[in-house]
């Protein structure tokens, strides 16, 4: 074994430049010689075999860990994808259109049980319905001198037409 090996440096130049001493180069060379002459023991073959076996086991363990991490990452990816899909699906569900009546009447009035309390317009509407109701009864019993049954049927047909026209807008 040489001290310099393939990264050989010009010791003389280096020492002269940095330490300004030729003697230093000689001291270093003598020291190197001592180290070369007394070689350290070599590692046992058994130790080398053990180290190689340990490395193989360590590599195997690393590969197993890498597989587990990869599988976990893929599973996590799928879960995230599923969550995103569900969220997207939920936001895409179209809410049913509100009845057109909502546009004509305020929501509170539409949903109220006590129409008469919901304002003047609603009270007038209730009165009108009552009036139609009593007119219908009168016609049904022929109080206004007409054929009650026919008149009621005609009225109903007319109301149905009005109703369908109303919803068509």
């Amino acid at each position: 074994m040489t001290m310099n090996g393939e990264t050989e440096e010009n010791l003389k130049d280096l020492f002269e430049k940095l330490l300004n001493s030729e003697q230093a180069v000689e001291d270093i060379e003598k020291g190197e010689r001592i180290l070369r002459e007394s070689a350290a023991p070599e590692p046992d073959d058994e130790l080398i075999a053990d180290i190689k076996a340990e490395i193989t086991a360590s590599l195997l363990h690393k590969k197993e860990n890498a597989f587990v991490y990869k599988a976990a990452a893929i599973a996590a990816g799928f879960i995230i994808l599923a969550i995103i899909s569900v969220k997207l699906f939920e936001t895409k569900i179209v809410q049913p259109p509100k009845p057109a009546s909502n546009l004509i009447m305020p929501k509170a009035v539409w949903e109220s049980e006590r129409l008469a309390d919901d304002g003047a317009d609603s009270a007038a509407l209730v009165d009108e319905v009552k009036q139609i109701e009593s007119d219908l009864l009168a016609m049904q019993f022929g109080e206004n001198g007409s054929n009650g049954y026919e008149t009621v049927t005609e009225m109903e047909t007319e109301l149905t037409e009005i109703n369908s026209d109303f919803w068509k807008g």
């Binding site: 020492f15 940095l18 020291g31």
Partner: peptide, 20 residues
């Protein structure tokens, strides 16, 4: 610094040589 490394190594090897 490289100068420190060189002088430490020089002193060390010189001492080792004397001890030997």
């Amino acid at each position: 610094p490289i100068g420190t490394t060189l002088s430490k190594l020089h002193r060390g090897l010189k001492k080792l040589q004397k001890l030997m």
